[in-house]
Design a protein around this nucleic acid. Structure first.
Lengths: 191, 191
DNA sequence: ACCTGAACACCGTTCAAGT
DNA sequence: ACCTGAACACCGTTCAAGT
């Protein structure tokens, strides 16, 4: 929510910036990641050019909306490294991850698509989150609490997949946690 | 590939129908489910109206392309019910499912989206496939070869999620099978 | 320094006119 | 019976003109 030079923006520019973020959040929440940028600008009462000036790409807009949330999750993973029960800590974190990382419909696909582009700030953000999660998984493996013959990246991929499914079928809000349990069981076998 | 009234079509209409299907397959393969319908018609050398006449919606086009493939997978599931080793048969089928059910990028999401619409032919097709898979899972459960406390629908959802992940990261073609193994392990715990 | 909106290229979808 | 493409409404993106 607070890019480096935000304070130095002209007052009206700052107001517009915040207004665009709020409107974009509402639109993405309602229509998913593909929501119309023109309508976001329209609903914010601004010209489309203003939106592009602040957010040169749809991805930049998403990044601004997700940055704090993702960094927060990454920080939580770091903090949980100190937890006395690595396995329980991992489950707590994976639950938070699947519930809070992908708040807009179509987000996993968007993220995956931009993940190849090394220059993208959103990709860098995702990468940090992914690394933080992988470290937590590795930690539980080192503690001997989950099997060590599974790549942490694969576990993260699986968690992402579960988040994706949960998002596709909002009619069954319990599904996510059931699938996560299934993953947990797979990771405990032969620990 | 062969809707009921195909033989009764005028020769040119039939040619156009086939040409649209072939071109659409190429375009969807290259650009995913969101490929431009106008360009499909253009590349097939036909007016956009002709495409709409044969396929009133993008979903109808997808359905025509996927019908045989999905019915085939459903039939295989049915046949595998007779397999002497229910667990191995299930794994064979789930592997085929994750490899062959979602051939275009964006297909899982498209399918999920249309799955709510009861009137859609594509949705009906998916529903049959899902039911066939669920039956195979139930069968392995009844034989006591995988745990019985997991809903077959959840296993299918997980398989779909794995297919989705595999499709997103084509750089790691082995990931799909590794994740499937992880699912298998989760299903074997406490069988 | 920032905002605006017209301009351009594109797409989805429909439908009157053709053969 | 089938095909065509113009017409309409929409969107993404850029940029010259404004304040």
């Amino acid at each position: 929510m607070s890019p480096p030079g935000l304070r130095r923006m002209r007052a009206d520019a700052r107001r517009n910036y915040e207004s665009l973020l709020a409107t974009a959040h509402a639109m993405f929440s309602e229509h998913g990641t593909d929501a119309s940028l023109e309508e976001i600008a329209r609903r914010a009462g601004l010209g489309i050019g203003t939106l592009y000036r602040h957010f040169p790409t749809r991805e930049a807009l998403l990044e601004a909306l997700l940055h704090d949330r993702m960094e927060g999750l990454a920080a939580e993973a770091g903090a949980l490294l100190a937890d006395p029960s690595p396995r329980a800590a991992l489950w707590r974190w994976l639950t938070a991850f699947t519930e809070r990382a992908f708040i807009y419909r179509g987000l996993p696909a968007s993220v995956m698509a931009t993940l190849r582009d090394e220059t993208s700030e959103l990709a860098a953000c995702c990468h940090r989150l992914n690394t933080a999660g992988a470290a937590l998984i590795r930690h539980a493996q080192d503690a001997g609490e989950i099997r060590a013959d599974v790549a942490p990246a694969d576990v993260m991929a699986m968690a992402g997949a579960i988040a994706w499914v949960g998002e596709q079928t909002p009619d069954d809000p319990e599904r996510r946690s059931r699938l996560l349990t299934l993953l947990a069981d797979g990771l405990t076998t032969g620990a």
